[in-house]
């Protein structure tokens, strides 16, 4: 009996230590993501290229932290969901930051697969849980009304139209999901308030005949090539 319990003891001690390792990595991830988020926030008042460079600068370290998580999990096949709660919130925030940046850059939606690729993750070992990804998109949506308000204040009158189109598409896409009455459903419900606020700004701009006006000025500064130009 003694031998057996010596094995049990080893296994229990091992489990405790894995948990502790992951907890520490997740705490580092938490601090780090706050920095990334802080680097993204000036987008409300600064030019995009400046912000982009700063945020992208964090990417390799971020991948490093995820690689650490993946490394621990790799040796414990099948235990991703045993510890999943440790990095849920952090991952959603990462998705928020990356999806915002991607949209500013391309005007398109960062996909689930692209997110995993950006983070150098092998989904067979350590992927991003779909719900975490979708919650990250909801956070991204929540930031857009403030962005639009500040862009218009800064004189970019075309921004509301673009955002309204994008957010409308996102909302429509989300509506095709059959969500249970859970956290994700609540977060999704919030998107329509974002859309409403953006629509109100668009209305303000239209009613005053400002639409398409400033974009001419924007042209003057040579930023016409893609959607992202208007975000500078």
């Amino acid at each position: 009996m003694e031998e057996q319990f010596a094995e049990f003891r080893a296994e229990l001690d091992e489990t405790g230590s894995v948990y502790e390792q992951l907890r520490i990595i997740a705490a580092n991830l938490d601090s780090f993501i706050r920095l990334m988020q802080a680097a993204l926030m000036p987008i409300h008042h600064c030019s995009f290229p400046q912000v982009k460079e700063k945020v992208k600068g964090y990417m390799s370290d971020l991948c490093g932290l995820y690689a650490q998580l993946a490394h621990v999990i790799k040796d414990k096949p099948g235990q991703y969901y045993r510890y999943h709660d440790l990095w849920r919130n952090q991952t959603s925030t990462v998705v928020f930051v990356l999806a915002f940046l991607h949209w500013l850059d391309t005007g398109g939606l960062l996909t689930h697969t692209e997110t995993e690729a950006l983070l150098n993750l092998d989904p067979a070992v350590f992927g991003i849980d779909l719900e975490d990804y979708l919650i990250g998109l909801c956070s991204f949506s929540n930031e857009l009304p403030r962005y639009v308000v500040n862009r218009v204040t800064a004189g970019d009158y075309n921004c509301p139209k673009e955002v309204s189109t994008f957010l409308g598409d996102l909302y429509t896409a989300f509506r095709t999901l059959n969500l249970r009455n859970d956290h994700l459903r609540k977060r999704f419900d919030g998107i329509k308030y974002d859309l409403k606020k953006v629509e109100e700004v668009l209305y303000d701009v239209k009613i005053r005949g400002l639409l398409n006006g400033p974009s001419l000025q924007a042209t003057a500064t040579g930023n016409e090539s893609n959607v992202a130009t208007s975000h500078q």
Binding site: G168, Y171, K192, Y193, K196, E199
Partner: peptide, 11 residues
């Protein structure tokens, strides 16, 4: 309520 708000959101 959801209909009303998304109605407004859709103009």
């Amino acid at each position: 309520m959801r209909l009303a708000i998304s109605g407004v959101a859709a103009g």
